[in-house]
Design a binder for these strands. Structure first.
Length: 802
DNA sequence: ATAGGGTTAG
């Protein structure tokens, strides 16, 4: 950027700001005194040489020529030096210098010079203001802009077309589109620039509709649209995917023979890409004769936006092959989402390296795009270190960082980042909440969910469909299905995601019949189901044991709805068949399915073999899983638990060693409970809380009432030699039980007790919870990552399958 | 001598 230049005096480099306006005045005063002493008589400046010029005239003309040439060549030190030598420079001279400074990025200096001009009593003219107003835009200074605007009014230049156009542009670029509107409305004469400025101002403020309206009004006012209008209005069409309007503008472009204008070509390629017609972009691109970097960037972006990462990349490669074209930051920004989409971490990293070598940093947009790519490629540490080294961050980069944490399954981290962001006095927006709500969904209790919901409403995002959909899921996962239903009810225009989410919400709470009913409600409302609808529906059927219904829906997917089952659907079906009892059928299903089984698919079969206590199958399946994911902790733990149940302690030990040698650790089981209004986190055998002794006392009383744990829960399958080992595996003080007791202690009689767990509840605790619910006559709700068990009167809604 | 434009992150 511009280095500091001194415009308030020629001796010392400094700039005059509002704060030190007084010293500036003094300096300026001195200069005037000096100049006044030096030359007594000043001649009026003439525009050309004439034979009878005086010496003074000649030298002043010479100075003016030198000044102009210095300004033209960007030598401002010299230009300013000459300027200081001129006695009483004319308004024209001042204007030339202000223009030169503005055009070369010396915005502050241009503004300072204008203030000095004003102070020295040199009258500004209609030319002065467009230059200095442009400097305000460059400096992003609304304060200066408003001050200069008031000078415009006082001096009566607010009727000048050029000055008004400059003001319209200034206010729209400084984010005050209403001010632009006001000035525009008061203009008696408007030209194409005025209209175009309003149109592009609306586009910049994201107001697609106003910009289209303005474009229409412009034509109604019989101002013919030009290339500037076309480029702006295509931007408006891109904004909300107004394909029809875009095509209409394209027709006008052809009629006006503007279709070989390089910038219009770029805008058209971009517009078709953003409206989802990438074939049109491609066709246009192939006809472009002179391919600029911007055109390449547009087509790379168009493929990226239209889910064609491979073609996006091949464009990039072709671009590299063509001569004299250097990818710039925008190229990388447009390409990085394709890296993310393909999980092409190596390519993403090489983009990063390329950017470093080309000296593109710091660049907040590029850095955020890299952060996002790293997050989506599952490299949270790289995403985070990107953020840490960023010189400038903004709401978008914070949001991307939060998303990276959530995508990596680090919900706690995401919540911390969210807190940090708020303490930096950044105001969360709609996307912040859409990103952070899944973190609440995984970690929060209903009360915390209500708090974030209250914040959302307070900030005015309560009716956003994206947020409402995220809220439905959040409440359901936190255990409050009623709140989820309420949010759903309040959505005026429910979209397919709203329906998918509420269907799954009831599924995870064990109300499969409601899920099924909601699906038919959805059909009745004329909402077309998509693949995710069937994931919700099949998951609900499988969780709730509705085997026949699930199978029917699965077969109707293709026949009735023309949706090809994806890997998630097959996963649901394995779950479903697994619990039907016919485990061979489930295995056969996997062998026959047309997609390559993933570790998750095998994981479903592993769960089923555990339930049916089929250790041979479990071992076989575990082998498959570990060959796909050697670090699948869940698989080790499940197998180890099965060995423990069979008292095969040597196998238990060997799994423990195997995990240890790989540095794998069991997830520490913990339970969450609201205790006296606050979330309390409890681990197995946890004694760390102030409330611990009370909770343990309560548990002891209950244990005694329901019998010793080994009798109640051990189911007599353990013989004395196993007792010692068994004690080490005792579920007596598992977090779930401690949490249930804490809940019983801190809530009124008759209300349900709600516990959240990070791992599935063990069989012993499940049995205990059933008995406790009967004994205390309380409803106990225990949520694990998959399902909410609802215990009452000694029974659980899972019907003992989970 | 004065004003407007293409490709840019969540």
């Amino acid at each position: 950027m511009a280095t500091a230049l001194c415009v308030s005096c020629s001796s010392k480099p400094s700039t005059v700001t509002d704060k030190d306006f007084l010293p500036g005045r003094r300096k300026a005063g001195k200069i005037i005194e000096n100049l006044d002493v030096g030359i007594n008589v000043r001649s009026p400046i003439s525009t050309g040489d004439s034979p009878n010029m005086t010496r003074g005239m000649k030298s002043s003309l010479e100075q003016r020529r030198r000044l102009l040439s210095f300004v033209d060549s960007g030598c401002f030190e010299n230009a300013l030096h000459v300027f200081e030598e001129i006695t009483r420079p004319s308004t024209f001279i001042w204007n030339v210098l202000i223009r030169g400074l503005t055009d070369n990025g010396f915005y502050q200096e241009a503004i300072d010079l204008y203030y000095r001009m004003e102070w020295e009593g040199v009258g500004s003219d209609k030319y002065t203001f467009p230059f200095v107003i442009k400097a305000c835009v460059g400096l992003f200074s609304l304060v200066d802009g408003q001050r200069i605007h008031s000078r415009v009014i006082k001096m009566g230049f607010d009727k000048d077309l050029y000055v008004c156009n400059s003001l319209v542009i200034m206010y729209s670029k400084l984010g005050c589109i209403e001010q632009s509107e006001k000035i525009f409305a008061d203009m008696l004469v408007k030209d194409a620039v005025s209209w175009n400025s309003m149109i592009s101002g609306y586009v910049a403020s994201g107001d697609c509709l106003s910009s289209l309206t303005c474009f229409r009004d412009m034509q109604a006012a019989r101002i013919s649209c030009d290339r500037f209008s076309v480029i702006s209005i295509l931007g408006a069409c891109s904004l909300y995917g107004c394909l029809l309007k875009g095509k209409e503008v394209h027709c006008q472009v052809i009629r006006r023979q503007l279709d070989s204008d390089p910038m219009i070509e770029t805008s058209l390629i971009d517009m078709y890409g953003k409206c989802g017609l990438v074939e049109y972009s491609d066709r246009l691109f192939n006809r472009v004769s002179q391919r600029s970097v911007a055109v390449w960037n547009a087509i790379i972006g168009a493929y990226g936006l239209n889910d064609e990462p491979v073609r996006s990349f091949s464009c990039f490669e072709r671009m590299l092959e063509s001569d004299n074209l250097d990818p710039n930051a925008v190229t990388l920004i447009n390409l990085l989402p394709s890296c993310a989409r393909m999980r092409a971490l190596v390519q993403g990293k090489s983009m990063h390296g390329f950017a470093i070598r080309k000296g593109m940093f710091p660049h907040v947009v590029l850095e955020t795009a890299l952060l996002d790519m790293y997050g989506k490629c599952g490299c949270l540490n790289l995403a985070d270190s990107m953020f840490v080294q960023m010189k400038e961050t903004n709401l978008i980069s914070w949001n991307a960082r939060i998303a990276a944490y959530v995508q990596s399954g680090n919900e706690k981290g995401a919540l911390h980042v969210f807190q940090d962001m708020c303490s930096e006095h950044l105001h969360p927006d709609e996307i912040t909440f859409v990103n952070i709500l899944p973190a609440y969904a995984e970690t929060a209790l209903p009360k915390e969910g209500q708090q974030i919901h209250a914040n959302i409403i307070k900030l005015g995002f309560g009716s956003s469909i994206f947020i409402c959909n995220a809220l439905i899921y959040m409440y359901a996962k936190c255990g409050d299905i009623q709140a989820a239903q309420l949010v759903f009810n309040c959505i005026v225009y429910k979209d397919v995601i709203s329906w998918n989410t509420i269907i799954l919400a009831y599924g995870i709470h064990g109300f499969g019949e409601i899920s099924v009913r909601l699906f038919s409600d959805m059909m009745a409302e004329g909402i077309k189901p998509n693949g995710s609808t069937f994931v919700s529906l099949l998951a609900s059927c499988s969780i709730c044991g509705m085997v026949d219904e699930g199978q029917n829906y699965f077969s109707s997917m293709k026949t009735e709805y023309n949706i090809d089952p994806g890997i998630e659907h097959y996963g649901c079906m394995v779950d479903l068949l697994g619990r039907s009892g016919n485990i061979d059928l489930a295995k056969h299903f996997i062998d026959e399915m047309p997609l390559v089984p993933t570790a998750r698919i095998w994981g479903s079969l592993l769960s089923a073999s555990r339930y049916h206590r089929n250790i041979e199958l479990a071992e076989l399946v575990a082998d498959r899983i570990l060959s796909l994911e050697h670090d699948n902790t869940g698989c080790y733990v499940l197998l180890s638990n099965m060995y423990a149940e069979l008292r095969r302690w040597a196998d238990v030990e060997s799994i423990r060693c195997s995990m240890q040698s790989q540095g794998l650790r069991r997830t520490t089981a913990c339970s969450l409970i609201e205790y006296n209004g606050k979330a309390l986190q409890i681990t197995n055998n946890d004694c760390s809380h102030a409330e611990a002794s009370m909770i343990y006392d309560a548990l002891d009383i209950i244990s005694r009432k329901i019998g010793d744990d080994l009798h109640v829960c051990g189911v007599l399958k353990f013989k004395p030699p196993d007792l010692i080992r068994r004690r080490a595996h005792s579920a007596m003080y598992h977090s779930a039980r401690l949490a249930i007791c804490a809940g019983l202690l801190s809530t009124p009689v008759g209300t349900p007790v709600l516990v959240r767990k990070n791992v599935r509840i063990c069989e012993d605790c499940h049995n205990a919870a059933k008995i406790i619910s009967e004994m205390t006559d309380r409803e106990i709700v225990v949520g694990d990552p998959k399902f909410y068990h609802r215990f009452s009167n000694g029974k659980c809604t899972c019907k003992d399958y989970w």
